[in-house]
Amino acid sequence: MKAKDDPALATLEPADWPDSGRRRRSIWAAVWPGLSAIALVLVIWEAVVLTGWKPEYVLPPPTTVLAELGGFLLDSKFWLAVSITLLRALVGFSLALAIGTGLGIAVSASRVLRAALGSLLTGMQTMPSIAWFPFAILLFGLTENAIGFVVVLGAAPSIANGLISGIDNVPPPLLRTAKVLGARGLTLYRYVILPSALPTYVAGLKQGWAFAWRSLMAGELLVIIANRPSLGVQLQYFREFANAPALIAMMIVILVLGMAFDAVFSRLAAVVRRNRGLGETRL
């Protein structure tokens, strides 16, 4: 007898059945709002172009831009630009991760450091990263280091703050329980405080990534280094040559890359939350 025919199970919701059709439907349910939004944007864009508000060499129609985008994918120079930008992002973010995490632990553990740096870290988060560049260029010249410096400054405070608030918000009952179980000092940190802080830390990472990506794009527009054709440099270059289709195509690339990494962090956050039964907060 198949399980489905079992009368005892007949009252179960259809949602309980592992059914490949259902899975296909649920993927569709997750994807269609995004797809329709994109379609809507394309339609509006096309409509605006058709009104003749701006000449086509300034505001090209979607088809031209998409053709340009397709052309990018076959162009080795484009892939070089992508790899230069991504490498900068990853190196900068990794540094910010190390610095922000270290700073977060230090500040949360030491009363003196907290008094000294706590509000400064929050303040740093509100500082527009582009405001750092004149100083960074003064310090490092038009170099990779100037860009890296600002990327780290943009991302590290968010990461540190995420960790600090995670550590500050460990539920007191869990701390009491851990102490009765014999956890003290470093052991308490390693086995209780840090794991408990993880969801907030991951939220900080996600925000840190967003800041790093923005700082990086600002940096690539301002700090142009010879023979380093990054995405930002390409953007600048297309503007100078008034190549609107390529310019918009490049913006789409930057948007998609940023979203892709953001999705990775969202996924990570969702897994962490689901493991703890926190569910996803829908607003």
Binding site: L174, L181, A183, S196
Partner: peptide, 25 residues
């Protein structure tokens, strides 16, 4: 040892993980 009104299990660990942490400590 102590038990509270709430079980206060560590939510990032499985049941086994909770008990193993007590053994470890």
């Amino acid at each position: 040892g102590m038990m509270f009104q709430d079980a206060n299990l560590f939510p990032w660990l499985t049941v086994r993980g909770n008990i193993e942490l007590a053994l470890r400590l």
